[in-house]
Write a protein that binds this DNA or RNA. Structure first.
Length: 113
DNA sequence: CATTTGACTTTGA
DNA sequence: TTCAAAGCCAAAT
């Protein structure tokens, strides 16, 4: 039942994304690693693109490793997502990327749940 | 059914 | 330092 496995994968991605604390950000690769895909960060992004809007996933808190945000069309415009993150306490660098070293989501206790 | 592509990451030159 | 290529797995064409 590969179909169900995929659904499970997506569900876990949504679950983890929803667990990201306010004022913190996580990387696709980080989430992928939790699920057992050390280089499958793109899978997480793909799962996000399929994510139902009614889940209200904080996808604006999920960024790539360089601190760059998701494509503008996802939120409507670049400034929008940046404003949301700033409103949560995220600080940005002069080049418009997130200060990862400061806001990267670190798991406490070695377990995220 | 084969090929391409993607909200990524890492490594090598 | 920046740039290019390979690896990841699934969905779309």
């Amino acid at each position: 039942m590969a179909d169900k496995d995929v659904k499970n994968f997506n569900t876990r991605v949504y679950e983890i994304a929803a667990l990201i604390p306010r004022g913190k950000v996580a990387t696709y690769g980080q989430i992928a690693m939790m699920l057992g895909y050390p280089r499958g960060g793109i899978m997480v992004g793909r799962a996000m693109s399929k994510a139902p809007a009614h889940l209200r996933l904080p996808c604006h808190r999920v960024v790539n490793r360089t601190g760059r945000l998701a494509p503008p069309e996802v939120f409507g415009s670049e400034d929008v997502q940046r404003a949301m993150l700033e409103a949560e306490g995220i600080t940005f660098r002069p080049d418009g990327t997130i200060d990862m070293a400061r806001h990267i989501w670190t798991v406490s206790g070695g377990r995220f749940s």
